[in-house]
């Protein structure tokens, strides 16, 4: 751990000012700290200026609002509070489940939704600075995972420069439900589709998001839609709790008389960014959920998937996870 300046921002403007003032000195916002502090201790992230934004929890940043138009989640809402919210559980189960199945209760109590979508990859080579080669940590240094131990790594959205998995769960629920994200920055506010927040690694895996310097996530907005009630998050992993996904699926299904009117699908554990499986959705529209249609959807979702050795199984596992999740969603009693 390196020395750094710690500052508590009493308001949004103060936070913004602090960051703007410190822009040259590598500033970082601090929410729950469960990503940032870990990576600082590991010497992976080395901000010189840490601006604690937890005081904003009392403002719109910390609120959960639900109405006819949709769901609004403040970026400083704790994972546990959103996961335990009865209305979210009932009307947006995929959101509640993606949070409930993530991390541990202690972490969920600490961790914020804003921090969650910005969590860094769990690639062990990224997290261990004694490995020289990591393009994400050290641009241009290479990628130790390509030919290394890559069982947990991605099979979709990879590049020759980085195959690190986006490890979060909540992000997949958001992208499935067409969420948008409200931002405020030194240059004012803007709203972007959540799908535009994360960047594919391509040849700049160190640039993970489209956030501008000093920009703060205020909230996430999930529009109300006919498919949100019949939704779920299925997470397949090496143990039953407290573990990242080997493969996961976020499903939201609008079906009538056994036919798919519309469906939203996102896949986790297998991709470098929150991953919307649009091709699989197209395959399913207008069809019944049965063994053939889910198999066709699964195949469509994994066209172009590429394993790197230890993670080859994720293609097959991802397909089976998607199939199982679709069947489970179709069978839900709501």
């Amino acid at each position: 751990m390196r020395p750094f300046i710690y500052e508590r921002a009493p308001s949004r403007n103060a936070a913004m000012q602090a960051v703007t003032a410190a822009v040259d000195t590598k500033a970082s916002y601090l929410a729950g700290g469960t990503t940032l502090l870990d990576l600082m201790k590991l010497d992976v992230m080395r901000p010189q200026h840490v601006i604690d934004i937890n005081a904003l929890e009392r403002t719109v940043h910390g609120r959960i609002e639900l109405d006819r138009n949709g769901l609004r989640l403040g970026a400083l809402v704790r994972m546990a509070d959103a996961a335990d919210h009865p209305d979210i559980q009932q009307q947006y189960p995929v959101i509640a489940q993606s949070l409930q199945l993530a991390a541990s209760q202690q972490l969920r109590n600490m961790a914020s939704l804003g921090g969650n979508v910005l969590q860094r990859t769990r690639c062990t080579y990224f997290r261990d600075v004694s490995y020289a080669a990591c393009n994400k940590r050290n641009p241009g240094s290479g990628c130790a995972a390509l030919d290394g131990f890559n069982r947990m790594h991605a099979v979709l959205g990879t590049s020759d420069h980085c195959i690190a998995t986006y490890a979060g769960d909540f992000g997949h629920a958001l992208i499935a439900l067409d969420a948008s994200i409200d931002l405020v920055g030194p240059d004012g506010t803007r709203t972007i589709p959540f799908a535009e927040l994360h960047r594919l690694p391509s040849d700049t895996p160190d640039q993970e998001t489209t956030l501008r310097p000093g920009e703060l996530i205020v909230s996430f907005t999930v529009p109300a839609a006919p498919w949100t009630r019949r939704s779920l998050y299925l997470k397949v992993r090496d143990r039953q709790s407290y573990e990242f996904a080997l493969a996961s699926a976020a499903i939201a299904l609008d079906q009538q008389d056994g036919t798919v009117r519309d469906v939203r699908i996102a896949l986790g554990g297998i991709s470098t960014v929150p991953w919307r499986a649009v091709e699989a959705e197209t395959v399913l529209r207008g069809k019944a959920i049965d063994e053939d249609s889910v198999a066709a959807a699964a195949d469509a979702a994994f066209v172009g998937a590429k394993g790197h050795g230890h993670n080859d199984f994720k293609v097959e596992l991802g397909k089976r996870t998607l199939s199982r999740a679709l069947q489970q969603a179709a069978a839900l009693e709501i």
Partner: peptide, 20 residues
């Protein structure tokens, strides 16, 4: 390649949790 341990932490070195 390097004869080095990869999952040398308690998040990646898997042991059962209560749910298991």
């Amino acid at each position: 390649r390097y004869a080095r341990y990869v999952n040398d932490n308690l998040a990646d070195y898997m042991v059962p949790v209560n749910a298991d």
